[in-house]
């Protein structure tokens, strides 16, 4: 288990993708899966920085990565605005150009790229996003 606290800043996305990729390679994921995990972690972090900490400076993003024989688990904690993923409508990825909405795309990609995505929030713990990817599962 490694836990790292980042300033909630887009400049840290490179570093976040790097540590996530390193852990994913240790588990034995393919290059395609490593990219998918990086993208999911980036979308999750970007959402936290952009939405949870909207208009806030000095916010922190804590990332816990744990690996086991066939599984990678990423937990992201923040103390920004709580957010209900169920409130984000799934984007229509078949809509015509003029109807296309970009909102919700990050969350949609996270769900498609990872095997499990869950979210909990309380005033004591802050917001906790958990993402899991298993070796051998498709997606």
């Amino acid at each position: 288990m490694s836990k790292i606290v980042f300033d909630a800043n887009f400049d840290n996305l490179d570093k976040i993708r790097e540590i996530v990729a390193e852990a994913a390679r240790q588990v034995g994921f393919s290059d395609k899966e490593v990219y998918a995990i990086q993208l999911a972690a980036d979308e999750a972090s970007s959402n936290i920085i952009e939405h949870a900490y909207a208009g806030v400076t000095g916010g922190k993003l804590e990332i816990d990565i744990s690996i086991s024989e066939n599984k990678l688990k990423i937990i992201m904690r923040d103390h920004g605005k709580p957010f209900d993923p169920a409130s984000v409508p799934e984007p229509n990825v078949k809509a015509a150009l003029s109807e296309r909405k970009i909102g919700g795309l990050g969350m949609y990609l996270m769900r498609k790229l990872m095997d499990e995505v869950s979210y909990e929030s309380s005033p004591e713990t802050g917001n906790i996003l958990t993402m899991i990817k298993r070796l051998g599962d498709s997606g």
């Binding site: 970007s46 150009l97 970009i102 795309l105 990050g106």
Partner: peptide, 19 residues
């Protein structure tokens, strides 16, 4: 090497404008 949905968002905005 890499593009997240933030990049997709720019592509979408430009495509709307261009078309």
């Amino acid at each position: 090497e890499y593009m997240s949905s933030a990049g997709f968002r720019s592509l979408l905005a430009s495509q709307r404008l261009c078309k």
